[in-house]
Amino acid sequence: MGASSEAVRRGGAGPGDEPAGALPHRRYAMTVDTRQCVGCKACVLACKAENDVPDGFCRDWIVEEIRGEFPVLSAEIRSERCNHCTDAPCVKNCPTGASHVNEGGVVLVTHHKCSGCKACIAACPYDARFVHPEGYVDKCTFCLHRVQKGLSPACVGVCPTGTLTFGDASDPESSVAQLLRERRSKVNHPESGAGPNVHFLV
């Protein structure tokens, strides 16, 4: 798996690079427990270290929202990233086929096909993409290179409060599916119609 795993880690794998025997109907998803997240940014640092994200850029980030009316206030802290949308506008708008849907519905960018036209960046409802200094568009890969080895994404693995859960939402036995059944959840900007797969437990 060495070479293909490296390609996926860099986000550069294309369709057909999936290992033999990959389940065709996986639906990788993530839950973010907003009642657990303290905004420590360990997920951001783990991602940068794991994926060699260049200085000044990030593939995941922390959003803090304060709502209410003083003095009755509530805070919500969310760890956010690419939503690996089921009906991804970035993939639809990519003119070269570089942005594509890979194993488990994970949205990836094939670097050597990307001309850096930025149509996918404009199309993304979550502003989750950016232009890598090397000229291609980059984003969260759900750490597919780790997932294919049976590991969790770097952000999930490092989270000290158990905020992040990753798994196959189409498998009813998976932790993600159970959390989505048992807890109330929401997604960011459902009005985009893209079908995001990062769910926030509230």
């Binding site: 940014k41 959003v63 803090e64 709502r67 003083f70 206030l73 930025k118 502003d127 950016f130 232009v131």
Partner: peptide, 22 residues
């Protein structure tokens, strides 16, 4: 009232933040 008072983000990606300018 659940009005948004303040939102902060740690993200500051060039071209993307504070608002898209690609």
């Amino acid at each position: 009232m659940n009005t948004l008072i303040e939102a902060t983000t740690t993200r500051a990606n060039p071209g993307i933040d504070p608002s898209l300018h690609i």
